[in-house]
């Protein structure tokens, strides 16, 4: 293609991004790749050590632990928050009166910045004076449902991670709004046809609504996989050093510590690249798998 006036203008208009992409993304990404093969602190020059960082990582228990924690978080937080978001969207989509109010209420938590959120959650889940355990106690005292144990949320290594998972279901506002918009795009004609067949609301949900929503779900799930793998601020503030027993030590925290506590920038870069690859692979397969599903059911 010849360079027309328009293509000149086009490149010129795209120039800010071309610069931004090269300087703030591509160059650091490549430099991290190079650094990952070196022993390097910012204060001393990088020394090439081949794949030693990667070998060391494979033998590093904390690396595996932090990776495991991160996977645990993603495996529970992504589906749970997706289900909660879709559930809320379905409830709101019933065109109930006052829908806008409910929507606002459900959305508000998503506005809370990460730092105050972390501070607030420490307070809510305090094992001794937390309002969550108080709520459980009230339920137990009145013998509603069944006796629920009062976990020591922040101090017990088997539950501490779940506090963050619960947090992820509290902040589903964005996803909820997206699903709600998606639901409103489902053609009414489909429901009318189903009504003629006498389909139940549940059947309609599973046979029409969710399949029609599946492209939106796919996009959102992929985005939340990417963000959940990077979780940093909340655990960094809530659980210094990943306490208890590193059960809340996430991958990003280890990268940060390796780089800026241990001054082991090469090691941190190697970890960063592994994270990039994991996200890349997950996204790739998620797309591939869901693309199939999406097309199949939507047709």
């Amino acid at each position: 293609m010849k360079f027309t006036n328009q293509s000149k203008a086009g490149l010129l208009f795209a120039l800010p991004w071309l610069i931004g992409f090269s300087v703030f993304l591509l160059y650091p990404l490549l430099r991290a790749f190079y650094n990952s093969f070196t022993e390097y602190t910012v204060l001393t020059p990088a020394v090439w050590i081949g794949t030693e960082n990667y070998h060391a990582l494979m033998k590093d228990k904390v690396f595996w632990q932090s990776l495991g924690n991160t996977f645990y978080y993603a495996i529970f937080a992504v589906p749970l928050s997706t289900i909660v978001a879709i559930g809320l969207a379905l409830l709101l989509n019933t065109k109930v009166k006052g829908q806008a109010f409910y929507r606002t209420f459900f959305f508000l938590p998503a506005l809370v910045p990460a730092v105050p959120m972390a501070i607030l959650w420490l307070w809510l889940f305090n094992g001794e004076k937390g309002i969550v355990n108080y709520g459980i106690q009230v339920l137990n005292d009145h013998n509603w449902l069944f006796q629920v144990p009062k976990p020591n949320w922040l101090g017990d290594k088997t539950v501490a991670k779940n506090v963050l998972v619960i947090m992820s279901t509290w902040t589903v506002g964005h996803a909820m709004v997206i699903y709600l918009a998606g639901l409103q795009q489902v053609p009414l004609a489909l429901y009318e046809a189903a009504d003629l067949d006498g389909a139940s609301p549940i059947r309609k949900t599973f046979k029409i609504t969710l399949p029609m929503l599946s492209p939106v779900i796919m996009f959102n799930v992929i985005m939340s996989i990417i963000t959940s793998f990077q979780i940093f601020t909340q655990p960094y503030i809530m659980f210094p050093g990943g306490a208890p027993e590193r059960s809340t030590y996430f991958y990003s925290m280890y990268i940060y510590d390796a780089a800026f506590r241990d001054n082991n920038m090469g090691y941190a870069s190697a970890m960063g690249w592994i994270m990039f690859l994991i996200i890349f692979i997950l996204t790739f397969f998620a797309r591939k798998y869901m693309d199939k599903k999406v097309h199949y059911e939507a047709n």
Partner: peptide, 19 residues
């Protein structure tokens, strides 16, 4: 451009700091 949304910040953290 769309694919760059996949790049996690932690991988860029160290080189950006040096830059």
């Amino acid at each position: 451009t769309l694919a760059t949304m996949m790049i996690p910040f932690p991988v860029l953290m160290v080189p950006l700091y040096a830059m």
